[in-house]
């Protein structure tokens, strides 16, 4: 479903991604972990072109991202993203946050968009908050709304950029629960996370990045029980 070949990304002279290649199958749940500054977020953000790769090739569902003829907007419709700091639209109600893009980007009928948004809000347990403004919600609630907002576009892939890192500890669980449910429905997911327990439990595969390189690409069992590189061992010793 997603194929990444020799992906490089530099900011000026600073090379953040030094040639990453991997392939992600449909319905796979991938946890991307690694020390800070290892390029995890940059890698994820290249997948919907929030960062423009310096070189390499990314293919998503048959479309090559950096081709001139490829419609970036179309790809972004198919790749949902959830951010560390939620980035809900503060001047729109929860419901409007969910319906804006389906109506204005996909041309969805308003009533249908509302219906869909209400269903999604019910799924993340926030139906009763539909007419609130985001500032009235807790961090965990905001992130659940943000997940629902991305899902409202019917994406084929969901990217999560440290979705629980900005949350108070007691709210992490509710967000992870929503993500687990989503994984159970068969959504293809790439998750940059520091939640090792979650990665171990939910992910099908672990990508371990260090210094801009993909140095382990393996199953969670293998990765947590017996990582093959010293870097991964050191990292796990620090975080577990």
């Amino acid at each position: 479903m997603i194929k990444i070949e020799d992906l490089h990304k530099s900011y000026g002279k600073n090379e953040v991604l030094k040639g990453i290649s991997t392939e992600i199958k449909e319905k796979e749940v991938i946890a991307i972990i690694g020390p800070s500054g290892s390029g995890k977020s940059t890698f994820l953000r290249c997948l919907n072109l929030l960062e423009e790769p310096t070189s390499g090739k990314i293919t998503i569902a048959g479309d090559v991202l950096m081709d001139k003829g490829t419609n970036i907007m179309k790809i972004r419709e198919e790749v949902g993203m959830v951010f560390q700091h939620f980035h809900l639209f503060p001047h729109k109600t929860v419901l409007e946050n969910l319906t804006y893009a389906p109506i204005n980007v996909k041309g969805m009928d308003k009533a249908a968009a509302i219906k869909k948004a209400e269903d999604l809000l019910t799924k993340v347990g926030l139906f009763e908050k539909r007419n609130e403004y985001p500032n009235r919600l807790s961090g965990g609630q905001k992130q659940r709304v943000a997940i629902a907002r991305a899902l409202a576009m019917d994406p084929k892939v969901m990217l999560f950029d440290e979705p629980t890192s900005a949350l108070d500890p007691e709210m992490v669980k509710e967000v992870l629960a929503v993500m687990k449910n989503l994984a159970d429905t068969g959504m293809t997911m790439l998750i940059v996370t520091h939640e090792m327990g979650f990665a171990r439990e939910v992910a099908d595969r672990i990508l371990f990045l260090d210094g801009g390189k993909l140095i382990e690409d393996t199953s969670p069992e293998q990765f947590f029980a017996a990582p093959s590189t010293q870097r991964a061992k050191d990292f796990l010793e620090k975080v577990l």
């Binding site: 949902g80 993203m81 951010f83 980035h87 639209f89 576009m153």
Partner: peptide, 27 residues
């Protein structure tokens, strides 16, 4: 306006003009 607002709009595939008109300029 928080740069994340623009990124969130882009990630949803919202075209530039609409993003400015409905998301960024109102804020």
């Amino acid at each position: 306006v928080d740069k994340g607002q623009m990124e969130a709009a882009q990630a949803l595939g919202i075209p530039y003009a609409k993003m400015m008109k409905d998301i960024i300029i109102p804020q």
